[in-house]
Amino acid sequence: MLAEYAGVLVILVVGVVVACAMLGIHLLLGPRRKFAGKHEPFECGESQIVSPRRRYAVKFYMVAILFVVFDVEAIFFYPWGAIFQDLGWFGFMTMFIFTIPLAIGLIYEWMKGGLEW
């Protein structure tokens, strides 16, 4: 059973080794000249006025909520799509009914302004 996934393991190893090697060579070759001010976070020539560790708009959270819900919807679609022709009209109606509440949810969010930026 593992034979199919041997390729995945190999490419995981290859990818990690190559990426780490790139970072490693860079660490060896790059110069190291530190002085005060150089390592300050870049802020268009100013010193940092506010810390980035602060609160941000909640809209990002709304997008993430929608994403989680629709990602779960999508995982129900994948196996359904791949066996669709075996399921026939019954499967079609199943998924149609499955989609209706989610469509209502999307429309509700749309109407409430959850999709506006």
Partner: peptide
């Protein structure tokens, strides 16, 4: 630890996760 980076990271991930769902559904 940079304001611009933080905003960019949030924007990037919001955009990526949004299009991940769409990418999945367009291919069904």
């Amino acid at each position: 630890n940079n304001n611009w980076s933080m905003l960019g990271g949030l924007r990037a991930s919001a955009q990526m996760i949004s299009y991940e769902v769409t990418m999945g559904l367009t291919i069904v």
